[in-house]
């Protein structure tokens, strides 16, 4: 089955395309670098939404897929330099997870280039800014995430996800039915 390549059509030709980018940053390195970039008054693409996580080792392929499902145009995971992970090998695991998630994206027909892993040490404020710009440029080049169109249509033109006030705690759900609706963000609210 050769998929019709999801087109680079803007969501709404009248509106200029502004990519939305999600960056999962580890608390010790990339997030600190983001802080430093701010303190240094560095200018970088405002399209990036930083999500602080304790360690990139916690990143799961499903979190990355969900970001795309919810309309992100690009996603990246930023962790410590090789050998510098505060949890020994969390960044190594994250690299494997990102590679796996790229494969999953490829299978469904979304460009895997929309997803990357970066090493950003705590002291590298300028590198943080550079990666944010690079990823924004990638998203601009690839165009909007084709899923945005359906999401926006379903939501009556809005593209806002309500904040998740009660993030579920991880728990084993053996034997529990999980409905489609629970997985899909209710953007019409």
């Amino acid at each position: 089955m050769s998929d019709t390549q999801p087109g680079n059509l803007p969501v709404n030709a009248a509106e200029p395309f502004e990519p939305k980018i999600v960056a999962y940053c580890c608390t010790y390195c990339a997030y600190t670098a983001a802080d430093l970039a701010g303190s240094m008054r560095l200018e970088y693409a405002p399209n990036v939404r930083v999500i602080q996580i304790l360690c990139t080792g916690k990143i799961d392929a499903i979190l990355l897929l969900r970001a795309f499902e919810d309309g992100a145009d690009a996603v990246y995971v930023a962790g410590c330099a090789l050998g510098d992970c505060h949890y020994m090998e969390g960044n190594l695991r994250a690299m494997q997870t990102v590679a796996h998630a790229k494969h999953l994206l490829q299978e469904v027909g979304l460009q895997p280039e929309r997803l990357e892993f970066f090493h950003i040490p705590a002291s590298a404020g300028p590198l943080f800014a550079q990666r944010a710009d690079e990823m924004t440029a990638v998203a601009r080049r690839l165009g909007p995430n084709p899923l945005r169109r359906t999401i926006q249509r379903d939501a009556g033109g809005k593209l806002i996800k309500p904040p998740d006030l009660h993030p579920p705690l991880p728990e084993a759900k053996l034997g529990k039915l999980i409905r489609h609706a629970e997985r899909v963000s209710d953007v019409s609210m």
């Binding site: 897929l65 795309f68 469904v108 027909g109 899923l147 359906t150 034997g175 489609h180």
Partner: peptide, 20 residues
């Protein structure tokens, strides 16, 4: 998630429930 995304991209109606 993959089956949902794929269906959306192709404009097919599809709901996917899960149970393990």
């Amino acid at each position: 998630a993959q089956l949902r995304i794929k269906a959306k991209l192709q404009g097919k109606p599809r709901t996917v429930d899960e149970i393990t």
